[in-house]
Design a protein around this nucleic acid. Structure first.
Lengths: 193, 193, 193, 193
DNA sequence: GATGAATGAGAATTCATTCAT
DNA sequence: AATGAATGAATTCTCATTCAT
């Protein structure tokens, strides 16, 4: 059982992470630690009482995000049998985290190196599921014979392209929700024999 | 006819732009104005004598870049008849400017909003050429019946995906040169009936 | 008789002081209170439960150090008859505490004013012994007729000079151990008629 | 001939250095750059426009100080023939810079390493003059046969001891002025046969 | 037109100290 | 008595921008 103080600590830490996450999602990773502290309702020093450095904060936030994504993807892999289901679920998961995911892919270069590895690891987990499924379909002869990694890159490329150009495609509302159908349909048309 | 002074002014302006362009391509858009001035061999103040602000400088540089890209694309459109040729030329043009183009798409969030419109405008010029060609091919029945704008987004999505993940795909040497063949081949396989 | 709680309190207090002393000797007085608490195995707050402030801690530590030095000097005074013995013992005592003593004299400016008085008091105790002995020798006609306080200042000046320039004279190993003989010999040569 | 701006620049730089020097002499090297800027009547940023970093400022200030001391010592070496003259001049030079010199020797450990070499270099220049003179005297048989480097260390040890204990010996007025005579007399008595 | 010294508003980070638990 | 999370002022340093020369 946790003591009151442990709970308080965890609460504060989570408050900082949530606030940072929200601000990063809304305005990007260049938000200052002072800004985050203020918005989280804690002192500037408190941020550094919980995180060694800004990099550490970023690592934790992005790590947590990736872990939660990975968990969702894992569940997805179990349940989704058809390619169509898979793409639906993939899009659905990304849609639920669109803002933050968008920042992650558009501002990746601003982030410390360590964080980027976390990202890469996670992507390859998804790729693995994707590839297994596509290989199966290919054997069944329902889709074209194209190296599976290229199929994955094409699919993710399409999604990222829409996210990346969100302000062009859908400045106000979420892009993925709006174009999910079209994306999936196009991809399926492309891979179909 | 231009006075000597006007020529001098133009020369200085171009020197600043060229230097900034080179530095941005090499090290990203976080390079400081002082750094650019020094490398261009002019005083720090001169940068602001020619450009109202850093944003203005960025706008000009990126605008110029897009215009030059657009010009190259225009020439391309004339000469390239087949889809295969078109993709080759598109890749070739991007390959020639890979460094700067990569910075442009990976660090876009650092750039002022105004710049982003410039970018969009240009992309649609390319899209126009692309769409014309694809429509023609579709009529000829050589490729699948898929909305042309989706084909364009898929193609550009693939290219950007490789650029954006350069550090994963090809950290040392240019990505596009290395994967141009695979990209083109995959795309052609996908759109073929 | 002390209650268990009082004993515990005293133990903790001493643990903090010992740890601080060790850290200060090794790394200087800029060590943080958090660092000391951690190394002592107590919470950061505990340091301030035992000492009103950092200054208070420093005062206590340095006070204790001086008292222990004074006690050792007192014993020395009893047993050492000749000047040569006296100098030997003086050096021996300082050698045993070289690290902390060195920090004390090289980083004195970081210390609170109050501490500096503690230091002064102790030095005069040593001076007293020194002076008694030198006066006796002077009467015996074995050494030059020079005001005893000047002899003391010369002697201590020499020692401090070597400590203060330790990084020049003997960066790795203890300075005093290395130069004790030379120091003593020189001083004796100087005061001899 | 210097332009107005060059003069202005030099003036500002010197103003910062002079102010820093004054503050350091009065209050020690822990004075903040903001404090120095304010007192010098310039913006905080200006300090860093003239000096790359705090370390750089310190290096410049201490370097300049040592150079000026070295110059004075050099002149001294020419003119002072007797040991007595030498000691007088040495004391006189130090007396003229007592405050800063005192900070330099009492807070040396707080200073960046690079600075410490500057200090060491200068000391050895003085030592060289001192040793030449003492060797000569020793040959003449007017003083005791003691290794010259030990004589130097004893002399400098005495001076530093008085400076270091200034608050004990002479808290209000300069120490060296007050004790110069006694210091010189004692040293001469000690080295005389 | 070009200069470059000066600006000052931030940035991340540290640390002695407090106080509710 | 001991805890340790929270504080916030202070630190060095960066950088786009201005303006007198």
């Amino acid at each position: 059982m946790k003591s009151k103080r442990q709970i308080q600590k965890e609460t504060t830490r989570q408050k900082i992470m949530d606030t940072a996450c929200r601000i990063y999602a809304k305005e990007g990773f260049s938000a200052s630690t002072a800004r985050i502290a203020k918005e989280a309702g804690v002192s500037h020093g408190t941020v550094f009482a919980h995180f060694q450095s800004l990099n550490d904060l970023l690592e934790c936030i992005i790590g947590e995000f990736q872990i939660s994504l990975a968990a969702e993807f894992h569940d997805m892999a179990e349940s989704s049998i058809s390619v169509s289901d898979f793409l639906d679920t993939h899009l659905k998961i990304l849609m639920e985290h669109e803002d933050f995911y968008l920042r992650l892919i558009t501002e990746r270069s601003l982030l410390p190196e360590e964080v980027q590895y976390v990202y890469a690891d996670n992507q390859s987990a998804i790729a693995h599921h994707f590839n297994l499924m596509m290989s199966r379909e290919m054997k069944n002869g329902t889709i074209k014979e194209i190296p599976v990694h290229m199929l994955f890159n094409t699919w993710l490329g399409m999604i990222h392209y829409y996210l990346w150009n969100k302000d062009f495609f859908s400045p106000e509302e979420p892009v993925l929700a709006r174009y999910a159908g079209e994306l999936k349909h196009t991809f399926l048309s492309l891979i179909r024999k």
